[in-house]
Amino acid sequence: MSDAPAGGIARGDSDGVPATTADDSAGARETGHPVTTLLGREHPPEPRPPSANPLRNTYRTMPEAERSALWRQRLHEAEAGLTRLLAERHVNNRHLSDWFALQAEIFADLPDPSDGPLGWQRVFFRGQALMERFLVIRYGEQVLADWARAISAVHSDVEPDHGRGAADPVHRIARQAELYGSDYEFDDDTASGAADRAALTITHCAIWDYREKARRSGVRITLASPCTYCTKALSANIRAKGFEPSHSLRTGPTGHGCRWEATAPRDLPADPSGER
């Protein structure tokens, strides 16, 4: 895995297309806009050289194999989490039959191993949209918090620990943001490897761009905002790794964005007297 240890801002365009980082060399060139297989023919960009500044390393140069693997892991977390949630709720046979039929739809026409990450992006986004609709229709939007919690239990098992403390879950958020070509920037202390606190600002969330393209292509979108689910899921994943999450949403000239922090929990005393 190219789990880069340092932060920095990575910049893409409004179509979620990977572009050069803020300090890429002048020789890096654009190769045209890729279109996902959900929306059209796939045109993956040429790889770009890493940033010359080690403090501004980003995931913009994440290898295609790693991108595909992360899409598959995210799909596994979401589907296994929903199976776990339905087991906890002791759902009736009718809902189970509906779930089995939905699973068949989620895993239909899986990409060929040679297709690259955009095929897995298509499968993940379709599956996410189907699962959101399945849950909200039957239980309402309030069930998304329970689904996020169930997913985080799977996430805790399958997401590796890299020994960076609070930076681990924040780097996972950055890698997810990179999959869509979002713009993001680590705080300097995150880049330094501080174990008790890490923070990331997504200055332009390209999930919004992708879902609007998907909507126009006929994908049924259930939630008015991707933040409705995403904030619950990321918070639950941070907690599952033993840290306290906090976030804020923002909208500005660069579009929709958010800021995330993960901090080590305070070592609280066993009782109000302070004795252990």
Rank of each mutant, 00 (worst) to 15 (best):
A22R: 08
R72F: 09
R197V: 10
R250G: 05
A4C: 11
P54E: 02
S273K: 00
F186T: 07
T37M: 15
G12T: 03
R11D: 06
R220I: 05
I9N: 07
L118S: 14
G163P: 06
V35Q: 01
P18C: 01
S114A: 14
G181Q: 01
A264N: 00
M131T: 05
A148P: 13
P269E: 08
R126E: 04
G181P: 00
A104G: 13
T61C: 12
Q128A: 01
D271M: 09
D23G: 12
T222Y: 02
T203Y: 02
S25H: 10
I9Y: 07
D267G: 11
A104K: 15
S152I: 11
P117Q: 11
S68N: 03
F125R: 09
R172M: 05
D187R: 02
S25V: 12
A10I: 08
R74F: 07
G181W: 00
H171R: 11
L70M: 04
R56H: 03
S51G: 10
N92G: 15
S225L: 01
H171P: 03
Y229G: 13
E212P: 09
N237H: 10
D23C: 14
A80R: 08
P18M: 03
I238L: 07
D98I: 12
A19E: 14
A233V: 15
A26R: 14
F243G: 09
E30M: 09
D168Q: 09
A264S: 06
I151D: 14
H43M: 10
I238K: 08
H90G: 15
A22Y: 08
R138E: 11
R41K: 11
P5W: 08
H33Y: 05
A80W: 07
I137D: 13
Y210K: 00
G252Y: 00
W71S: 00
A101W: 14
W147Q: 15
H43A: 12
M131K: 09
V154D: 14
E42K: 12
D187T: 09
A78F: 08
T31V: 04
G40M: 08
L135D: 07
F100A: 09
P269W: 03
A236F: 07
R72P: 09
T58N: 02
I221C: 07
A22D: 06
C230Y: 04
R211F: 10
E275C: 04
T228E: 14
L268P: 04
G252H: 07
S2D: 14
S97V: 14
E88I: 11
A199S: 05
E66T: 07
E261T: 06
H162R: 12
T201R: 02
A129R: 02
W208K: 03
E261K: 07
G255A: 02
S235A: 15
A264K: 01
S14A: 10
R60C: 06
R172K: 06
P160M: 05
S182D: 02
E261R: 10
F243H: 04
P34I: 06
T201V: 01
E244N: 13
A80Y: 01
P111W: 12
Q73Y: 13
D157I: 10
R11W: 00
D161I: 11
T190V: 08
E64P: 10
A233W: 15
